[in-house]
Amino acid sequence: MTAKDALSLIFAALADPTRREILTRLSRGPATVGEVAEPFAMSAPAISQHLKVLEGAGLVERTTSAQWRTLTFRRQQLDTASEWVERHRREWGERFTLLDEHLAVMKEEKNNG
């Protein structure tokens, strides 16, 4: 099953270490496809596939000027993932706090009963 919603595409793109390295490189500024591919010991089609996934998730934008294809990191998409993680982190934290409080009450009742 392939997820098509934006958040799933972002997390799927971030799941691969090569794609995360590509984003790290692009976080320093735009680069050509060749510059991005240079440090990787993999074929051009493999790099192209990674870039396709990143573009599909909206994390990378490709522009063409003359013979140059430039890639740019689109940080806005990370905000979507970050907001989701933060919202759930808060919810889970609240649930663990409630569980701790409930367990403390149960322990107190056991000690008094």
Rank of each mutant, 00 (worst) to 15 (best):
M1K: 11
T2G: 03
A3Y: 15
A3K: 15
D5S: 10
A6H: 14
A6I: 15
A6G: 10
L7G: 02
L7K: 02
S8T: 13
S8F: 08
I10L: 00
I10C: 00
I10F: 02
F11R: 12
F11I: 14
A12C: 12
A12P: 07
A13Q: 04
A13R: 03
A15I: 08
D16F: 05
D16R: 05
D16I: 06
P17F: 01
T18N: 02
T18W: 02
R19T: 04
R19S: 03
R19M: 07
R20V: 08
R20N: 05
R20Q: 11
R20M: 06
E21S: 12
E21K: 09
I22M: 13
T24Y: 03
T24C: 06
T24D: 02
R25I: 12
R25T: 04
R25M: 08
L26A: 03
L26M: 04
S27M: 00
R28E: 09
R28V: 00
G29N: 07
P30C: 07
P30V: 10
A31R: 12
T32G: 15
T32S: 15
G34N: 13
E35M: 09
V36E: 01
A37Y: 00
A37T: 09
A37G: 11
E38M: 13
P39S: 06
F40P: 00
F40M: 02
A41N: 13
S43T: 14
S43D: 11
S43Q: 08
A44E: 13
P45Y: 10
A46M: 14
A46K: 11
I47Q: 01
S48L: 12
Q49D: 14
H50F: 05
L51M: 04
K52N: 13
V53D: 04
V53A: 09
E55F: 01
E55A: 12
G56F: 06
G56T: 08
A57T: 07
A57G: 08
A57I: 05
G58R: 01
G58S: 07
L59P: 01
L59E: 01
E61N: 05
R62G: 04
R62P: 01
R62C: 09
R62Q: 09
T63P: 00
T63Y: 02
T63I: 05
S65V: 15
A66Y: 07
A66P: 00
A66C: 05
Q67E: 10
R69A: 15
R69K: 15
T70N: 05
T70S: 04
L71T: 00
T72G: 04
F73C: 00
R74D: 07
Q77M: 07
Q77I: 01
L78F: 03
D79M: 06
A81G: 05
S82M: 07
W84F: 13
W84D: 14
W84K: 00
W84N: 10
R87M: 09
H88R: 10
R89Y: 09
R89E: 12
R89M: 09
E91K: 06
E91N: 07
E91A: 11
F96M: 13
F96K: 03
F96T: 07
T97V: 13
T97K: 12
T97Y: 08
L98M: 11
L98S: 13
L99R: 06
E101G: 12
E101V: 09
H102V: 10
H102A: 15
L103R: 13
E108Y: 12
K110E: 14
N111E: 15
N111G: 03
N112W: 12
G113L: 03
G113C: 02
G113V: 02
